[in-house]
Computed example of a mutant assay.
Amino acid sequence: MTTADRTHADHDLFAAPPPIDERTRTRLHARLAAEADRAGILDVAYRTLDTPVGSLLLAATGEGLVRVAYAREDHQKVLEQLAAGVSPRVLRAPARLDAAAREIEEYFTGRRHLFDLPLDLRLARGFRRTVLSRLTGIGYGTTASYAAVAEAAGSPRAVRAVGTACATNPLPIVVPCHRVVRSDGTIGQYVGGVEVKRTLLSLETTP
């Protein structure tokens, strides 16, 4: 091999690889996610979903849906929190979220009034978790006051704590904290914003 040939070979060795088209990149990523899931090393799978109230981040562990986050919560920050609080093995793997995405889409089109998904409530502890377990009992198209939820949770005076539990609900929409309103009938605050809360309540009460 001549000096020129060796120089050319060295250049080829360190040259940047050819770009991968988006379709190939998507296929390779899907294969990686599937292999990780089969190997049992995919602890938190996530995807995003476009909805009438903006982009939602959906995340699930092997136990069930663990997080639903609005764009205003900063999806990247939420993923970092999941990596720190659940497991660093977080990967975009839409297939695990297919059922959740389908049910949420059905909810927004008025075809679903009750979610039927396995939930992982590990991000809510103590009284907050007790509150969330009561929220699923508030029926579609109805509301309950913070005071009523506090009483149902066994602590009638813990109205403010109920508000905190709703504000930190890791699974909004699916666990319907938007159905909790103030005793005077005003809708109160919401993790997705007051307008989003109003939209959800309107969706559920419009024929």
Rank of each mutant, 00 (worst) to 15 (best):
A83I: 03
L57Y: 07
T48S: 11
D21W: 01
Y46I: 10
R89S: 03
R38Y: 11
L79Y: 13
A59M: 04
G110K: 13
R67S: 01
A39F: 03
R122I: 10
A93C: 11
T61H: 09
T51I: 03
H8Q: 02
A36M: 12
R67E: 09
D37N: 02
T26F: 08
R23K: 03
A34Q: 12
R72W: 03
Y107T: 08
P19A: 13
H113W: 14
E35Q: 15
R112C: 09
V44W: 13
T26Y: 00
A15Q: 14
P88E: 06
P118C: 09
A59T: 02
G40E: 01
G64M: 02
A69Y: 09
L117A: 11
G62Y: 10
A59I: 11
Q81P: 06
V53N: 07
D98W: 15
A95N: 02
E80K: 10
E35K: 14
Q76E: 15
A99T: 14
T24V: 07
L49A: 05
A83W: 09
V68F: 03
S87N: 14
E103I: 00
P118A: 08
R102H: 13
G110Y: 03
V86Q: 10
I104V: 07
R47N: 12
G85P: 10
R92E: 14
L79F: 04
A99S: 13
Y70N: 06
R25E: 09
L56T: 04
A45Y: 01
A45D: 12
A71P: 02
E22V: 05
D98H: 11
T51V: 08
R111Y: 12
G54F: 07
L114Q: 08
R47V: 09
P19H: 07
R38W: 12
A60E: 11
P18G: 04
R72F: 12
A71H: 11
G54R: 00
